[in-house]
Design a protein around this nucleic acid. Structure first.
Length: 494
RNA sequence: GGCGGCGUAGCCAAGUGGUAAGGCAGAGGUCUGCAAAACCUUUAUUCAGCGGUUCAAAUCCGCUCGCCGCCUCCA
């Protein structure tokens, strides 16, 4: 079965055929480093991280490039506000970005180029556009001439007339057409600058991505990704600059992720309705956030709320609990491969698990091959989790076959988790980590809880259920739920 | 104003022509000293509404209502 991806350019799902068999060249727009990253940035980066992982899982050799735009008006504005050099701002937020992405468990791209380290390439590209008549100098600025590039707006599927009809576009008499955009900007006094054939200035926004993507991936490459809000103008302008310069198709597949919403409204800086990654990770485990971000299809809007995060936490815990249950049964054993064992007979639940475990990889591939349908993939995983739980409870005698079957299921779930960047922890450790995080917010210590539970266990032993229930109620009143099991009593935070 | 998207159970969310995945929450049962957890069963004759095409539609077409996005920096 073939991988199919939704291409913004054609507005339909297409079979994914890399330009060079077995090799994928992928560029994703990173961030302009002038502020902290919010959950919207987290989504974009997690989504493309999963796409990167999945392509590799599918056996492709992927070259993944993600840039830092480290020179831009916003960076300069912030630097002026704080009275520091612009690179102090960009360096600070590159560090912040790197830390956020590391905490989110992202794989590192192969190349993470910075705009300021590619000014030479940018200048050459601008010069080429001027030489070919697609750009013109106006004072110390250089503009791209949109009317000269016929396919302009093919990605966002609009026309120049439509764009101007209701739009508020800054009138700049130096531009030949109101939609012309800057490739190079003249430096105002006090602003950072590079020497160029047009005087001292800096790159415009957009040109850095054309220059860097083509430098590392070639004039034509497979995948270019980013948030939906980059379709216009950023990606549209990248197409114009790149294709005008090379005369060749720039990108084969354009992939765009949907927004994170707050109360159905786009999370954005200007609305002020955003949460930074750091804030959310103070409250939720990074795997919970990843699981949440992947619980909807990447192109759909995703509503961010505490309730939704709590539900994600509960869902992820369900998977981890099943894995913990398997570890408990195996008790460190490594059973033989399940294929090598022929059971004498199978109970209904075992037969079901055998079948579901046997088909899970195929179903995962099917879901992911359909435009990276992670939500569907989770459905399949939960389906398997239910079968695991059933066997854990119903098959009281854990034969070698059952152990092998459980170990096999565990390995497959972890394998899938690896592609999605979740389920990377030891189950018990994860569950304790989550619990510890919650208990830290309660006015009770782990020591005290365990002391009370020990007291209750003693009471139960002597059949003093009144005292035992008193303790349980007292703990419950402080949000601690007591769980009695065959192996003894455990507890969790409500 | 122009262009585009979305509307599936209490909530979240898959499903683009063949008769509604999954998660959370809820109810009943098994288990338990009683609970909880886990498991089992159960919760949408129906996919915003109204028409149309078809043997067959949540899925295709038209209209209406509601929500959102882009057109300005934005993942």
């Amino acid at each position: 079965m073939a991988l199919r991806v939704y291409n913004t350019l054609s507005a339909r799902k297409e079979e994914f055929v890399p330009l060079e068999p077995g090799k994928v060249k992928m560029y994703v727009c990173g961030v302009t480093v002038y502020d902290h990253c919010h959950i919207g940035h987290a989504r974009a980066n997690v989504v493309f991280d999963v796409i990167y992982r999945y392509l590799r899982y599918r056996g492709m050799d992927v070259t993944y490039v993600r840039n830092y735009t480290d020179i831009d008006d916003k960076i300069i504005n912030r630097a002026n506000r704080e009275g520091v050099p612009f690179h102090e701002i960009s360096e600070r937020f590159i560090r912040e970005f790197d830390r956020d992405m590391e905490q989110l468990g992202l794989l590192l791209p192969n190349v993470q180029p910075k705009a300021t380290e590619h000014v030479g390439e940018i200048i050459s590209l601008v010069q080429e556009l001027i030489d070919k008549g697609f750009a013109y100098q106006a004072g110390g600025d250089v503009y791209f001439c949109v009317e000269r590039f016929d396919p302009y707006l093919k990605l966002s599927k609009r026309s120049l007339e439509e764009m101007q009809a209701g739009a508020r576009i800054d009138v700049d008499e130096r531009k030949r057409h109101p939609m012309d955009f800057a490739l190079w900007k003249e430096a105002k006094p006090g602003e950072p600058f590079w020497e160029s054939p047009w005087g001292r200035g800096r790159p415009g926004w957009h040109i850095e991505c054309s220059a860097m993507s083509m430098k590392y991936l070639g004039e034509t490459f497979d995948i270019h990704g980013g948030g939906k809000d980059l379709i216009f103008p950023h990606h549209e302008n990248e197409i114009a600059q790149s294709e005008a310069a090379t005369g060749r198709r720039f990108v084969k597949y354009w992939l765009h992720n949907g927004f994170v919403n707050i109360n159905s409204e786009k999370m954005s800086k200007s609305l002020g309705n955003f949460f930074t990654i750091k804030e959310v990770l103070d409250k939720y485990d990074s795997e919970v956030l990843r699981f949440f971000l992947l619980s909807a299809h990447y192109r759909s809007p995703l509503d961010f709320s505490d309730q939704n995060l709590d539900e994600a936490e509960a869902g992820l815990a369900r998977i981890y609990k099943a894995l913990a249950g398997i570890e408990e049964v195996l008790a460190g054993e490594t059973p033989d491969s399940v294929e090598k064992i022929t059971p004498v007979s199978m109970k209904e639940a075992e037969r079901e698990l055998h079948e579901k475990s046997g088909s899970i990889r195929e179903r995962f591939k099917e879901a992911m091959d359909d435009d990276f349908n992670t939500a569907q993939a989770f459905g399949n995983v939960f389906d398997l989790v239910r079968s695991i739980n059933r066997v854990l409870v119903e098959s009281t005698e854990k034969s070698g076959f059952i152990k092998a079957l459980l170990a096999d299921s565990r390995d497959k779930i972890r394998g899938i988790g690896g592609v999605l960047g979740i389920l990377t922890s030891e189950p018990v450790a994860y569950l304790e980590r989550i619990r510890g995080r919650k208990v830290a917010d309660l006015p009770i210590s782990v020591d005290e809880i365990e002391r009370l539970i020990a007291e209750r266990t003693a009471a139960r032993k002597s059949k003093d259920f009144k005292r035992s229930d008193e303790i349980r109620d007292a703990l419950l009143a402080r949000n601690i739920v007591v769980l009695d099991g065959p192996q003894g009593t455990t507890w969790k935070v409500k």
